[in-house]
Write a protein that binds this DNA or RNA. Structure first.
Length: 492
DNA sequence: TTTTGAGTTGTTCGA
DNA sequence: GTCGAACAACTCAAA
């Protein structure tokens, strides 16, 4: 690795006498905040009076343990393209670079008269460590480095129990949020930004190679519109059409009744503050805003318990008798478990990079409790395939499903995939959409085709084991085994 | 320090 | 078909 730091910088500066006369410049280091409105780092850069240099760095070391999955990379490509367009409308460019963030920032410091670097914080443990190091290194070189809260309503350390400890239970956490001074109002879109006279070199977006080599992303393209504009379209449509019916409709995966803002929030194309501000005070907004607080809580947990992406929050779960089985895991990932609702969910995920929340719970419960596969395997698959893959949310969700997290599901809460299917997809609409080989089965048979009569199956053109798999586990047997496995934790 | 009430999302069984 | 209880015990948060 090339050594960079003050010595190099000073040396370079000395060899470039013109450096001092160059225009003072402030870098806005874009990360998970790919928007122009309500972007505190950008606002700070403008307020600094220096020329504003927007930079995005594709940093292979940003998350060595959690490199972005294919779906996230696809999203990132399009979100960056959108950001480039929005910046161009304001006479700005987005300088794209590849490399470790520290090296890139110091390289830029040699190309411009760098006075400030501004960014919005991330809360993944690896990012925190990296950013801290960079901040110190920059400051040692006399470059002002400042970070801001761009993605949360409340910083993880702002919400504490009466004792000053982090919360471990959601309900008191959410109460504390609602009792705290309300989040600041979002800042308006920026229209006029002082731009540099000259621009440092930028890599072309395509050269970052974020798009998949094989063209599997058509379905993503049809489903999503990455970027700030798409985010606001979703939010406005949700507010106008879905918000008031949200509590009654949110559990039905065939409907478009949830906000689908998760990937936009993850990439910071819209901020939680903006969502909060837009919906607060609306009729019946509370149940949805509560979901935003779950996101806050997941970040709170990740911040205070940084090993939870890989280790169970409840230590006793280290000895849980998981049964690793590659064939079963593969069946689950491909949506070939023989349980139509589970398979529909897994296929929705594969095709669109997203899965309805209700179904996420069902497939997660199925992986962990019916198949007894380690929750980390499920988390990894989600990480690779979700466009909203987010370390805090993903970790929290899987620990919850596995029962090893804070405030987790009790051990006996084992979703019955057939019952959930009958309850939340009674008309089989969701299943027919994603498991078309079962399309012709009637509304009763479609939830559990192995229980259908021979005649019904024949009439629908379905041969089990040929067109659609038989269930890979029997529900009652698997449930009993899961209860026994959980009981074994208590015995020792 | 001790006590108390509560804790996202469910299922099954028996009356 | 509907309804309530049982399914564990523990930890958390606050009084």
């Amino acid at each position: 690795m090339q050594a960079v730091g003050c010595a190099t910088l000073i040396e370079m500066s000395a060899s470039v006498p013109a450096q001092k006369e160059k225009q003072p410049t402030a870098i806005v280091w874009f990360r998970k905040d790919l928007r122009l409105a309500d972007n505190p780092a950008l606002c700070a850069a403008i307020a600094s009076g220096a020329a504003v240099l927007p930079v995005y760095i594709l940093d292979p070391e940003e998350s060595l343990h959690w490199p972005m999955g294919g779906a996230s990379l696809w999203w990132l490509h399009h979100s960056l393209a959108q950001l480039q367009t929005s910046l161009a409308e304001r006479g700005l460019r987005l300088v794209l670079r590849k490399g470790t963030a520290k090296e890139v920032l110091f390289a830029l410091a040699n190309e411009v008269n760098l006075q400030h670097v501004f960014w919005n914080r991330q809360y993944e443990p690896e990012c925190i460590a990296r950013d801290k190091q960079i901040k110190t290194a920059l400051q040692e070189c006399g470059i002002a480095a400042e970070s801001f809260n761009g993605s949360l309503l409340f910083e993880p350390w702002e919400i504490r129990t009466g004792e000053g400890n982090p919360y471990k239970v959601f309900t008191p956490y959410s109460r504390a949020c609602l009792a705290a001074p309300p989040p600041e109002k979002p800042q308006p879109d920026v229209k006029v930004v002082p731009s540099p006279k000259g621009w440092p070199q930028s890599l072309p977006l395509d050269s970052l190679e974020l798009l998949p080599k094989l063209n599997w992303a058509d379905r993503l393209q049809e489903t999503w519109m990455p970027g700030e504009i798409g985010a606001w379209k979703h939010l406005r449509a949700f507010r106008l059409k879905k918000l008031s019916g949200y509590p009654e409709h949110r559990d039905y995966p065939a409907e478009v009744s949830t906000s689908r803002l998760s990937p936009h929030l993850h990439f910071g194309e819209i901020s939680a503050r903006q969502v909060w501000n837009e919906l607060q005070g609306q009729q019946d907004a509370a149940p949805y805003l509560r979901q935003i607080l779950w996101r806050e809580f997941a970040h709170h947990m990740l911040y205070y318990f940084p090993t939870t992406p890989t280790d169970p929050f409840r230590a006793e779960f280290r000895k849980f008798p998981w049964k690793m089985d590659a064939a079963r895991l593969k069946a689950w990932t491909r949506g070939e478990t023989g349980y139509p609702l589970v398979d529909a969910g897994m296929r929705e995920l594969w095709h669109t990079g997203w899965m309805h929340n209700r179904v996420r719970m069902v497939v997660a419960s199925f992986l962990v409790k019916h198949l007894l596969l380690p929750w980390q395997e499920g988390a990894l698959w989600f990480w690779d395939t979700l466009v909203d893959a987010d370390l805090a949310n993903n970790t929290f969700g899987w620990q919850w499903a596995a029962g090893c997290g804070a405030d987790a599901a009790p051990y006996f809460r084992i979703f019955n995939p057939i019952l959930q299917s009958r309850k939340f997809d009674a008309a089989g609409e969701y299943i027919r959409r994603w498991v078309p080989e079962l399309r012709a089965l009637d509304n009763n048979a479609i939830h559990a085709p192995w229980l259908a009569t021979v005649i019904a199956l024949k009439g629908a053109g379905v041969t089990l084991g040929k067109h659609y798999p038989r269930p890979i586990v029997d529900h009652a047997t698997a449930r009993a085994a899961a209860l026994a496995a959980f009981a074994s934790l208590r015995e020792k």
